[in-house]
């Protein structure tokens, strides 16, 4: 292990330990502050356990739906463009995805809403998934492309079919990179899900928007801190999962 990797690992370990502590302190502190304040009727309608839980739940559901969509699209497309018959398509697909990534998330969300006139969960989930697609797509392609060709040859040599080589050699070896991409996508999704409130997709962005529009800083801050806490928590869970889910031989 080089000194550089050792440092990166050390930074990871610091976040692994520090992040959950920071989340608990931050969210706990702000909730205690918000609930002990003198609240007017608008604030009481927004800052109560039921409403906060529902918005957090909506936010999580939106993020999970986005992640499922990303996995269902990005991994098959990533695998397809690394097959021999479609190899020419890999740079094209990655190029389109990279240019697409330059589009602002809020623009994609608003345009999707204006074009389809949908509202709610799917109106938020589809454009956010489109926006969070790139990390998983790129890492799937790179992960499979960087598998040692000698291993693929060896698999073919002992009589595996193309499908078996993909399933038992290429994909398992690409899993660590795909998981890293998935973690990035998930964090992007949780963050972008705060914008879901603009198209009535619910979530914690709703509290931020309400607090801002009705000039209730307590509501705004509570929503924002919950969103920050959730993002840090999901990122932390991703880091833990990344350590636990990779194939044993590669750890």
């Amino acid at each position: 292990m080089t000194a550089l990797e050792a440092r990166a690992r050390r930074a990871d370990r610091m976040r692994l330990l520090g992040q959950p502590v920071a989340v608990v302190l931050l969210v706990g502190g702000v909730l205690a502050w918000a609930f002990t304040r003198d609240l007017d009727s608008i604030e009481r309608a927004n800052i109560n356990a039921a409403k906060l839980l529902r918005d957090t739940w909506d936010h999580l559901v939106l993020s999970v739906v986005v992640t499922a969509l990303v996995l269902a699209v990005a991994v098959p497309v990533g695998v397809a463009v690394t097959r021999r018959w479609a190899r020419w398509a890999a740079p094209v697909v990655l190029g389109i995805a990279t240019v697409g990534q330059a589009a602002p998330a809020v623009g994609v969300l608003v345009l999707f809403f204006l074009w389809t006139e949908w509202e709610g969960l799917w109106a938020a989930a589809l454009p956010i998934a489109l926006y969070s697609l790139l990390p998983v797509l790129r890492n799937t392609v790179v992960g499979i492309q960087s598998v040692d060709p000698a291993l693929v040859e060896a698999g073919r040599g002992i009589g595996m079919s193309g499908g078996a080589v993909l399933r038992r050699i290429e994909l398992p070896l690409a899993v660590p990179l795909i998981l890293a991409g998935l973690r990035t996508s998930l964090v992007l999704a949780v963050g972008t899900a705060t914008l879901g409130a603009f198209v009535n997709g619910g979530g914690l962005g709703l509290l931020i928007d309400t607090g801002y529009k009705l000039n209730r800083p307590t509501v705004l801050v509570t929503g924002a801190v919950l969103a920050v806490g959730l993002a840090l928590l999901v990122d932390w869970l991703g880091a833990v999962a990344e350590r636990g889910l990779g194939p044993k031989g590669l750890r």
């Binding site: 964090v187 972008t192 962005g205 931020i208 801050v221």
Partner: peptide, 11 residues
């Protein structure tokens, strides 16, 4: 970087 930009802006 993990903090949602809309939330940071709100804060």
């Amino acid at each position: 970087l993990t903090v949602p930009s809309f939330a940071l802006l709100g804060l």
